[in-house]
């Protein structure tokens, strides 16, 4: 297929100017999101996954933040040079976002109905009454019981899980083509997390929305995404279909990440050691010439420190950046 992807990020560099120098959070990230698919952007704290996603909507504070180079093509059109006014036509209507903390993302002094209605009036030009009806319809769709009555309630009258449903209702109210979900379930309890992930899946199927899911949880990736991009220290280290990434991961970091997930083992885990990745993530100020994972990598050799490994593609739907590793199943 040669159709234009919904979103294509090309060699994105985003940094922040600080007193100690430039923090290069995103160092040349490229990825694509196709219409209607769920792409997971995975990595640990500070790997640049959120900054990448926030760059798409230009939600990073500028200054100190800056997109220093690269392109963000939305249906073929570069968003990087757009003004705030032009961006506002894209936001909510075309690309919407849900944040990790539903407590801080909602305004406490407006009812949830008013907040959803404001979005649809602003972006879809609906009248007051139609906007409220739309709010009720959305709340109902995301599984808030008795939506007609609850539309006038304030955020503090909802639990964490329900607030996240409200956030998702608001994000999807204008039927965007892409939803960026930034750790949408990280702050929630496990049973509620399961409910929200099921609901997101259901909404995706009903509305055909593509999802860029940012998460650190490989379990969530396996259950919800079709493809995944693994980031480490500002760079993409591996990309592929979820099936491939889990059945034959190639990059040593991906392999370590998958291995270190605590797995249920019928209560026998007590007597085993968890696999770990030695060391910790590198400083964001450091700019070594080689692979950023090399200091922690079991396969590292001299060449790894000298140059950044290019992307290798063992198959059309699988790419990774490592000189020495090959895709291989993880021994149980």
């Amino acid at each position: 297929m040669t159709t234009t992807p919904l979103l294509e990020i090309r060699d994105l560099h985003t940094g922040f100017h600080t007193d100690e120098g430039l923090v290069r959070s995103v160092r040349g990230v490229s990825l694509t999101v196709a219409r209607g698919e769920t792409l997971a952007l995975v990595g640990e704290s500070g790997c640049g996954k959120s900054v990448t996603a926030h760059s798409v909507l230009k939600l990073i504070p500028m200054p100190p933040g800056q997109i220093t180079s690269g392109q963000i093509l939305w249906q073929g059109r570069d968003l990087v040079p757009l003004s705030i006014r032009e961006m506002n036509r894209i936001r909510a209507r075309e690309i919407a976002i849900v944040f990790q903390e539903p407590m801080t993302a909602l305004n406490p002094v407006y009812s949830v109905g008013e907040q959803i209605a404001e979005v649809v009036r602003q972006h879809m030009g609906l009248g007051r009454r139609a906007a409220v009806d739309r709010a009720v319809e959305m709340l109902d769709m995301v599984g808030i019981p008795d939506a007609r009555r609850r539309v006038g309630d304030y955020p503090h009258q909802f639990s964490g899980g329900m607030r996240q449903r409200v956030m998702i209702a608001m994000a999807l109210a204008c039927e965007p083509k892409l939803l960026i979900a930034d750790e949408p379930t990280t702050a929630l309890d496990v049973t509620i997390q399961a409910q929200i992930l099921d609901m997101l899946q259901d909404m995706k199927e009903r509305l055909g929305t593509a999802i860029l899911l940012i998460t650190h949880d490989m379990g969530v990736v396996a259950e919800t995404a079709e493809r995944a991009v693994v980031m480490y220290a500002g760079r993409v280290v591996e990309e592929g279909t979820v099936d491939r990434l889990f059945s034959a991961p190639a990059h040593p970091y991906t392999r370590g990440l998958i291995r270190s997930i605590p797995r249920l083992d019928g209560g026998q885990g007590r007597h085993k050691r968890l696999d770990t990745i030695a060391g910790s993530i590198p400083s964001q100020y450091a700019n070594p010439p080689g692979c950023r994972f090399a200091p922690r990598c079991p396969l590292a050799q001299a060449d790894c420190l000298a140059a950044q490994p290019p992307m290798t593609s063992p198959s059309a739907d699988h790419h990774f950046a490592c000189f020495h590793s090959v895709p291989e199943a993880i021994a149980p």
């Binding site: 639990s159 509620i192 399961a194 949880d217 396996a222 259950e223 998958i258």
Partner: peptide
């Protein structure tokens, strides 16, 4: 329910969840 809510890091193995309705 707590056990079945844990996401399994094995794609394609969609287990049957013992889902809880409602909130705490």
């Amino acid at each position: 329910a707590l056990l079945s809510a844990i996401p399994v890091p094995e794609p394609g193995r969609h287990k049957v969840r013992r889902k809880l309705s409602g909130e705490l």
